[in-house]
Amino acid sequence: MSLLAVDNLRVTFPSDQGPVEVVRGLSFALGRERLGIVGESGSGKSMTGRAIMGLIGAPGRVTADRLEFEGRDLRNLPEWEFRKLRGARMSMVLQDPKFSLNPVIRIGDQIAEALEFHTQLSASARRVRVLEALEAVRIDDPERVARLYPHEVSGGMGQRVMIAMMVVMEPALMIADEPTSALDVSVRGQVLDIMDDLVRRRGMGLLLISHDLNMVARWCDRILVMYRGQIVEELGAGALNTAQHPYTLGLLASLPKLNEERATLPILDRAALDGFMAGAAR
């Protein structure tokens, strides 16, 4: 049984010009593995993550033929039931710790919150778990960091705190939505390393959402390439060179190389791409 099964997932928002579908019939299954979703901004990858977490509020609408997590149907799950899953069985690391951590609550208290609402642990037991979680993300002096406010830590440490917050309940599924794009290049590898280590050691499923093909190829087992709300190609991580779809090929071609010989990088020919996709749909 797969951890997460998604079949024909659609996310729709109303607009002045009628409903706009941002995710258009997505289907995939996720086991205890690392699955990457790549695509440009606006391709619907973040909305996919939020739809799985049940965080698309009105006026957005989520439909699917199948949306199952650990064998439970997430469609039409009442909010109070969904809340018991969020933070406990599934969690999500957001992009920028500068905005995703509450500025006026101490880091330790923010991490303890998942325990506060999902367990019966006493305050002192929660504290022990918080310090363990901080240690797990390789923070050397957890006691001190737990007392700090988010503005007192660096971006890299902020993101490690975020990860600690999301793994403290040892969920089965972790979604990471652009977890490193707001960070300095120098700490990106470290943060991904920590996340990867936790995911593997605890046997969690990871859904890594990013626009960075190379990064996803390096940290994931499988890659889904998304364009305009649809999956256009699925690739094995080591098999970027087997890509067939013109969109994926376009993405790959637009990556600068170290020993670059081209004067300008190619841009996507969207007209040709749309023509290709219309042909494929027919």
Binding site: L55, R83, L85, R86, G87, M92, L94, F99, L101, N102
Partner: peptide, 17 residues
């Protein structure tokens, strides 16, 4: 509308909190 509100919901924090 801030991101940390989404973080709180991701953690399963009740809406009142």
């Amino acid at each position: 509308g801030q991101e940390f509100i989404i973080t709180a919901r991701v953690k399963g924090v009740p809406e009142r909190v």
